[in-house]
Nucleic acid binder design. Structure first.
Length: 272
DNA sequence: GAATACCTGAGC
DNA sequence: GCTCAGGTATTC
């Protein structure tokens, strides 16, 4: 499941391998993953070169230009199972829905659940389609984040998942970050001290940066831009470990539903 | 702010 | 053959 670190790695890879290359072809095997029809997508992008990749939370925005027609922007969200990769000699399976041809270099879009979307938008940095999305979790300053969250009465877990407050965390990183910060997922920001909130944001950023450094493979079986599988460098403390013993204190890890999502935590390490 | 739709493979 | 997982837009 790609979260912010995986999306950041895709952004870096696209910049490295495709900047300056012209999109010369687009094969559409499943229109569903496009926000518009294949014809409209081709009309907007073909013949233009990739000249910028911007990431905001888990969203990517690619800018295409040919110096004559207006630039075009393609926004990509991988959702649960989306993958983008270049792979020598790769034979597309049934889950490959799009094949971009960059001057002879094939770039595949593969998505088992077809939740991901590739949508033409109107701006390379701040498309109106994601105007409701908050600042990137890695960039937001504490004062700004504090202003957005400190008065809220919903559970911390729900608010960290809320991309409108700050964008980038998914279910896995939220559970792990709250464990490392020692904060109960049901804790309300309004009941927490400023130092506690400072600790939450600091840990969230640390977890994301750590994961990016390890190729986004820290917590997940993730396949990178060149098809290399993830290597499980770090073990999860709580996510997906309900009923098991906490590896810090030995207490049984709890599992409850918060905001409709499974949430795992250690009652002893994360007291309410 | 909570439920629902979207989609498929994994695991019972 | 059933249930569950997950992020987001949409709808209550």
């Amino acid at each position: 499941m790609p979260e912010l670190p995986e999306v950041e790695n895709v952004a870096v890879a696209l910049r490295e391998h495709l900047t300056g290359r012209t999109l010369t072809g687009l094969k559409v095997k499943c229109t569903k993953v496009l926000g518009q029809c294949g014809t409209a997508t081709r009309r907007a992008l073909l013949g233009k070169a990739l000249d910028g990749v911007h990431r905001h939370g888990k969203y990517l925005v690619l800018n295409f230009t040919d110096g004559k027609r207006p630039d075009a922007q393609l926004m990509i969200h991988l959702r649960m199972t989306g993958q983008i990769f270049i792979l020598e000699g790769y034979i597309p399976d049934k889950h490959v829905h799009l094949i971009f041809d960059f001057d002879g270099l094939p770039v595949h879009y593969r998505d088992i659940r077809k939740f991901g979307r590739l949508l033409l938008v109107d701006d390379p940095i701040n498309p109106t389609a994601i105007a409701h999305v908050g600042p990137d979790m890695l960039l937001v300053r504490f004062n700004e984040w504090h202003r957005r969250i400190s008065h809220r009465k919903a559970p911390m877990k729900a608010l960290l998942l809320d991309q409108g407050i700050a964008a980038g965390l998914g279910n896995i990183y939220v559970d792990e970050s709250l464990f490392l910060a020692g904060i109960h997922p049901l804790a309300k920001p309004v009941d927490l001290t400023r130092p506690q909130l400072q600790s939450v944001l600091r840990v969230c950023k640390k977890v994301l940066r750590h994961s990016i450094k390890h190729g986004g493979t820290t917590f997940m079986n993730y396949t990178n831009f060149h098809g290399k599988p993830g290597n499980f460098q770090s073990k999860l403390h709580v996510y997906g470990r309900g009923g098991e013993a906490c590896d810090v204190c030995g207490e049984t890890i709890e599992r409850i539903q918060i905001a409709g999502r499974s949430s795992c935590f250690c009652n002893n390490c994360q007291p309410l």
